[in-house]
Amino acid sequence: MISKKVANVSEALEGIKDNMTLMLGGFGLSGIPENSISKLVELNVKGLTCISNNAGVDNFGLGLLLHKKQIDKMVSSYVGENAEFERQMLSGELEVELIPQGTLAERCRAAQAGFPAIYTPAGFGTEVAEGKETREFDGKMYVLEHAFKADFAFVKAWKGDAAGNLIFKGTARNFNPVMCGAAKITVAEVEELVPVGELDPNQIHIPGIFVQRIFEGKNYEKRIEQRTVRPKL
Protein backbone atom coordinates (compact mmCIF):
# COMPACT_ATOMS: atom_id res chain seq x y z
CA MET A 1 0.00 0.00 0.00
CA ILE A 2 1.33 3.42 -0.98
CA SER A 3 0.56 5.78 1.87
CA LYS A 4 -0.80 9.26 1.14
CA LYS A 5 -1.37 10.09 4.78
CA VAL A 6 0.03 13.34 6.15
CA ALA A 7 0.03 14.31 9.83
CA ASN A 8 -2.12 17.41 9.62
CA VAL A 9 -3.40 20.28 7.51
CA SER A 10 -0.06 22.15 7.73
CA GLU A 11 1.75 19.25 6.11
CA ALA A 12 -1.06 18.84 3.59
CA LEU A 13 -0.61 22.41 2.38
CA GLU A 14 3.18 22.35 2.09
CA GLY A 15 4.33 24.02 -1.10
CA ILE A 16 1.44 26.47 -1.35
CA LYS A 17 2.67 29.78 -2.72
CA ASP A 18 1.35 33.15 -3.85
CA ASN A 19 -0.21 33.35 -7.34
CA MET A 20 -1.09 29.67 -7.55
CA THR A 21 -4.23 28.26 -9.19
CA LEU A 22 -6.38 26.18 -6.86
CA MET A 23 -9.40 23.95 -7.38
CA LEU A 24 -11.79 23.73 -4.44
CA GLY A 25 -14.65 21.24 -4.20
CA GLY A 26 -18.11 22.00 -2.88
CA PHE A 27 -21.53 23.21 -4.00
CA GLY A 28 -22.60 26.24 -2.02
CA LEU A 29 -21.22 25.42 1.43
CA SER A 30 -21.91 21.69 1.07
CA GLY A 31 -18.79 19.52 0.76
CA ILE A 32 -16.28 22.37 0.95
CA PRO A 33 -12.75 21.61 2.27
CA GLU A 34 -13.22 23.60 5.48
CA ASN A 35 -9.88 22.72 7.08
CA SER A 36 -7.82 23.54 3.99
CA ILE A 37 -9.63 26.85 3.52
CA SER A 38 -8.93 27.82 7.17
CA LYS A 39 -5.25 27.01 6.64
CA LEU A 40 -5.11 29.07 3.42
CA VAL A 41 -6.51 32.00 5.42
CA GLU A 42 -3.86 31.47 8.12
CA LEU A 43 -1.01 31.15 5.58
CA ASN A 44 -2.23 34.38 3.98
CA VAL A 45 -1.13 33.38 0.47
CA LYS A 46 -2.13 36.04 -2.04
CA GLY A 47 -2.88 36.45 -5.71
CA LEU A 48 -4.76 33.16 -5.91
CA THR A 49 -6.89 31.97 -8.81
CA CYS A 50 -9.68 29.81 -7.41
CA ILE A 51 -11.71 27.38 -9.48
CA SER A 52 -14.82 26.61 -7.46
CA ASN A 53 -18.50 26.39 -8.38
CA ASN A 54 -19.38 29.08 -5.84
CA ALA A 55 -17.48 31.68 -3.85
CA GLY A 56 -18.78 30.96 -0.37
CA VAL A 57 -20.80 33.42 1.68
CA ASP A 58 -19.59 36.60 3.37
CA ASN A 59 -18.14 34.95 6.45
CA PHE A 60 -17.64 31.32 5.49
CA GLY A 61 -16.05 29.17 2.81
CA LEU A 62 -14.13 31.07 0.14
CA GLY A 63 -15.73 34.25 1.51
CA LEU A 64 -13.02 34.08 4.21
CA LEU A 65 -10.27 34.29 1.55
CA LEU A 66 -12.13 37.04 -0.33
CA HIS A 67 -12.45 39.04 2.87
CA LYS A 68 -8.63 39.05 3.22
CA LYS A 69 -8.22 39.84 -0.49
CA GLN A 70 -6.22 36.68 -1.09
CA ILE A 71 -8.05 35.90 -4.35
CA ASP A 72 -7.27 37.74 -7.59
CA LYS A 73 -9.49 35.65 -9.84
CA MET A 74 -12.50 33.39 -9.40
CA VAL A 75 -13.69 30.84 -11.96
CA SER A 76 -17.24 29.88 -10.96
CA SER A 77 -20.73 29.22 -12.26
CA TYR A 78 -22.78 30.99 -9.58
CA VAL A 79 -21.68 33.68 -7.16
CA GLY A 80 -24.83 35.05 -5.52
CA GLU A 81 -25.25 35.36 -1.76
CA ASN A 82 -21.94 37.14 -1.23
CA ALA A 83 -21.94 40.93 -0.82
CA GLU A 84 -18.16 41.31 -0.44
CA PHE A 85 -17.66 39.27 -3.61
CA GLU A 86 -20.05 41.52 -5.51
CA ARG A 87 -18.31 44.66 -4.20
CA GLN A 88 -14.84 43.43 -5.25
CA MET A 89 -16.13 42.31 -8.65
CA LEU A 90 -17.93 45.57 -9.45
CA SER A 91 -14.93 47.65 -8.28
CA GLY A 92 -12.60 45.62 -10.49
CA GLU A 93 -10.43 44.34 -7.61
CA LEU A 94 -11.49 40.79 -8.39
CA GLU A 95 -11.45 39.21 -11.83
CA VAL A 96 -14.37 36.83 -12.36
CA GLU A 97 -14.86 34.24 -15.09
CA LEU A 98 -18.39 32.88 -15.03
CA ILE A 99 -18.87 29.62 -16.89
CA PRO A 100 -21.70 27.08 -17.16
CA GLN A 101 -21.77 24.61 -14.29
CA GLY A 102 -21.54 21.54 -16.50
CA THR A 103 -18.62 23.11 -18.35
CA LEU A 104 -16.86 23.74 -15.04
CA ALA A 105 -17.30 20.09 -14.08
CA GLU A 106 -16.15 18.83 -17.47
CA ARG A 107 -13.07 21.11 -17.61
CA CYS A 108 -12.04 19.57 -14.28
CA ARG A 109 -12.79 16.07 -15.52
CA ALA A 110 -10.86 16.69 -18.74
CA ALA A 111 -7.80 17.65 -16.67
CA GLN A 112 -8.28 14.54 -14.54
CA ALA A 113 -8.72 12.27 -17.55
CA GLY A 114 -6.02 13.60 -19.86
CA PHE A 115 -8.19 15.40 -22.40
CA PRO A 116 -6.82 18.79 -23.53
CA ALA A 117 -10.30 20.10 -24.28
CA ILE A 118 -13.91 19.09 -24.81
CA TYR A 119 -16.80 20.26 -27.00
CA THR A 120 -19.99 21.27 -25.22
CA PRO A 121 -23.26 22.72 -26.51
CA ALA A 122 -23.57 24.87 -23.36
CA GLY A 123 -23.15 28.58 -23.98
CA PHE A 124 -23.18 28.45 -27.77
CA GLY A 125 -24.54 31.75 -29.12
CA THR A 126 -23.99 33.50 -25.76
CA GLU A 127 -21.19 35.72 -24.46
CA VAL A 128 -19.61 32.65 -22.83
CA ALA A 129 -18.63 31.42 -26.30
CA GLU A 130 -17.13 34.73 -27.46
CA GLY A 131 -13.61 34.25 -28.84
CA LYS A 132 -13.83 30.47 -28.53
CA GLU A 133 -13.58 27.93 -31.31
CA THR A 134 -16.96 26.46 -32.31
CA ARG A 135 -17.76 23.46 -34.45
CA GLU A 136 -20.79 21.72 -35.89
CA PHE A 137 -21.44 18.04 -35.22
CA ASP A 138 -24.53 16.44 -36.77
CA GLY A 139 -26.20 19.77 -37.34
CA LYS A 140 -25.71 21.13 -33.81
CA MET A 141 -23.17 23.74 -32.68
CA TYR A 142 -20.62 23.17 -29.91
CA VAL A 143 -18.02 25.29 -28.10
CA LEU A 144 -14.44 24.13 -27.49
CA GLU A 145 -13.58 24.40 -23.79
CA HIS A 146 -10.07 23.68 -22.47
CA ALA A 147 -9.08 21.51 -19.53
CA PHE A 148 -8.12 23.47 -16.42
CA LYS A 149 -4.52 23.64 -15.28
CA ALA A 150 -4.19 23.91 -11.51
CA ASP A 151 -1.44 23.60 -8.90
CA PHE A 152 -3.54 22.21 -6.06
CA ALA A 153 -6.98 20.61 -5.79
CA PHE A 154 -8.57 20.71 -2.33
CA VAL A 155 -11.37 18.21 -1.87
CA LYS A 156 -13.48 17.03 1.02
CA ALA A 157 -14.77 13.48 1.45
CA TRP A 158 -16.76 11.65 4.10
CA LYS A 159 -14.46 8.68 4.63
CA GLY A 160 -11.00 7.86 3.38
CA ASP A 161 -7.99 5.69 4.13
CA ALA A 162 -4.22 6.14 4.08
CA ALA A 163 -4.15 4.74 0.52
CA GLY A 164 -6.07 7.87 -0.53
CA ASN A 165 -9.31 6.04 -1.34
CA LEU A 166 -12.37 8.24 -0.89
CA ILE A 167 -16.09 7.86 -0.23
CA PHE A 168 -18.38 10.88 -0.37
CA LYS A 169 -21.71 11.45 1.33
CA GLY A 170 -24.96 12.72 -0.23
CA THR A 171 -24.79 15.85 -2.34
CA ALA A 172 -21.55 16.87 -0.57
CA ARG A 173 -19.98 14.81 -3.37
CA ASN A 174 -20.65 17.40 -6.14
CA PHE A 175 -17.38 18.72 -7.69
CA ASN A 176 -15.04 16.90 -5.30
CA PRO A 177 -14.57 13.67 -7.31
CA VAL A 178 -13.95 15.48 -10.62
CA MET A 179 -11.23 17.63 -9.04
CA CYS A 180 -9.29 14.62 -7.73
CA GLY A 181 -6.22 14.20 -9.89
CA ALA A 182 -7.13 17.30 -11.93
CA ALA A 183 -4.32 19.39 -10.38
CA LYS A 184 -0.59 18.74 -9.83
CA ILE A 185 -1.30 17.89 -6.17
CA THR A 186 -4.66 16.74 -4.80
CA VAL A 187 -5.22 17.22 -1.08
CA ALA A 188 -8.15 15.29 0.39
CA GLU A 189 -9.52 16.07 3.82
CA VAL A 190 -11.94 13.53 5.27
CA GLU A 191 -14.32 13.46 8.20
CA GLU A 192 -13.10 10.03 9.13
CA LEU A 193 -9.78 8.43 8.21
CA VAL A 194 -10.33 4.69 8.64
CA PRO A 195 -7.71 1.90 8.74
CA VAL A 196 -6.63 0.58 5.33
CA GLY A 197 -8.74 -2.45 4.43
CA GLU A 198 -11.87 -1.23 6.17
CA LEU A 199 -13.41 0.43 3.10
CA ASP A 200 -15.12 -2.02 0.77
CA PRO A 201 -13.30 -1.75 -2.61
CA ASN A 202 -16.72 -2.04 -4.31
CA GLN A 203 -17.93 1.13 -2.61
CA ILE A 204 -14.96 3.45 -3.25
CA HIS A 205 -15.88 6.54 -5.29
CA ILE A 206 -12.34 7.79 -5.97
CA PRO A 207 -9.33 5.43 -5.96
CA GLY A 208 -6.24 6.61 -4.09
CA ILE A 209 -4.20 7.00 -7.28
CA PHE A 210 -5.91 10.39 -7.80
CA VAL A 211 -4.93 11.68 -4.34
CA GLN A 212 -1.44 12.77 -3.19
CA ARG A 213 -2.16 13.81 0.40
CA ILE A 214 -4.90 12.83 2.82
CA PHE A 215 -5.68 13.85 6.40
CA GLU A 216 -8.53 13.70 8.88
CA GLY A 217 -10.11 17.13 9.27
CA LYS A 218 -11.31 18.66 12.53
CA ASN A 219 -14.29 20.64 13.79
CA TYR A 220 -16.48 20.52 10.68
CA GLU A 221 -19.12 23.21 10.90
CA LYS A 222 -21.08 22.06 7.80
CA ARG A 223 -23.08 25.23 7.67
CA ILE A 224 -26.52 25.06 5.98
CA GLU A 225 -27.33 27.94 3.61
CA GLN A 226 -31.09 27.43 3.24
CA ARG A 227 -32.56 25.46 6.12
CA THR A 228 -35.92 24.33 4.77
CA VAL A 229 -38.13 22.00 6.79
CA ARG A 230 -41.75 20.91 7.02
CA PRO A 231 -43.57 20.70 10.33
CA LYS A 232 -43.87 17.31 12.02
CA LEU A 233 -47.40 15.95 11.72
Binding site: S77, Y78, V79, E86, L98, I99, P100, Q101
Partner: peptide, 8 residues
Protein backbone atom coordinates in the same frame (compact mmCIF):
# COMPACT_ATOMS: atom_id res chain seq x y z
CA UNK B 1 -24.34 39.33 -11.97
CA UNK B 2 -24.87 36.08 -10.11
CA UNK B 3 -23.92 33.67 -12.84
CA UNK B 4 -25.67 31.09 -14.96
CA UNK B 5 -25.23 28.08 -12.69
CA UNK B 6 -26.46 25.09 -14.66
CA UNK B 7 -28.95 27.02 -16.81
CA UNK B 8 -26.77 27.19 -19.95
Amino acid sequence: VKGMGGAM
